[in-house]
Design a protein around this nucleic acid. Structure first.
Length: 206
DNA sequence: TTCAAGATTTCCT
DNA sequence: GGAAATCTTGAAA
């Protein structure tokens, strides 16, 4: 264990503290979970190092009905098996031959829904997190974490009671040819410089 | 067994 | 603004 004399006292960047979001938080309507995840803090501990960032952009993927979801039409395979499991777990998949994406499984076992983490404001020592692939790269998240429970110390989410801000809803990113689902506002985000894509002017409150 | 597309990021013009 | 990089998964033959 590397002794880095830690962040003892007057740390200019004190890590957020608060209750850990339990399984019951994720065992609810996916849209509600996605919306309420904004502002929460994702914590990742690896090799004795603690990394964290505040969630500012997420997307909801709704079970078999959602044509854009991996579980669309009730598809089930080794890859998305985790989504069919109990809530409060991490669903990590590999895509485009070079990127990992992190999701939080929601709803009771048997209902394949999840929330995709698209961007967060990085804490001290954390790299850019604007985009699904970058989030995983910055937090050293790969398929080894697929299926792990969102409980300390490996990977978890805490609520440090950050004051809520306006929530913007937009269509999801990278979705195409999926009919009505393509344009449905299932992406939730705060106005932040770390978003994967800027908020459309039409949604901005000028 | 073989092929096409994918919940993306980066670099070039 | 446009194309390349890179590999796993899912569906078709």
């Amino acid at each position: 264990m590397q002794s880095v004399t830690s962040v003892a006292s007057s740390g200019s960047a004190a890590a957020p503290a608060g209750p850990v979001l339990g399984q019951e938080f994720f065992d609810r309507d996916t849209m509600a979970v996605a919306r309420e995840l904004l502002g929460k803090v994702l914590v990742r501990e690896v090799e004795g190092t603690r990394l964290w960032g505040r969630l500012v952009e997420v997307e909801a993927y709704l079970g078999p009905d959602d044509l854009a979801a991996h579980s669309s039409g009730g598809r089930r395979s080794p890859r998305n098996e985790v989504m069919y499991g109990p809530p409060g777990h991490a669903y990590v998949y590999f895509t485009y031959g070079m990127h990992h994406c992190l999701n939080f499984v929601t709803q009771p076992e048997g209902t394949p829904q999840a929330v995709l983490v698209r961007a967060l404001e990085p804490g001290p020592g954390v790299g850019r997190c604007g985009g699904p692939g970058l989030v995983c790269r910055a937090f050293s998240i790969d398929r080894n974490l697929n299926g792990v429970a969102l409980i300390p110390p490996t990977l978890y989410v805490i609520d440090d009671h950050e004051p809520a801000r306006r929530i913007y809803e937009t269509p999801r990113i990278g979705i195409d040819g999926t009919g009505d689902w393509r344009d449905r506002p299932m992406r939730f985000c705060w106005d932040s410089p770390d978003l994967s894509r800027p908020i459309p002017k039409a949604l901005r409150v000028v």
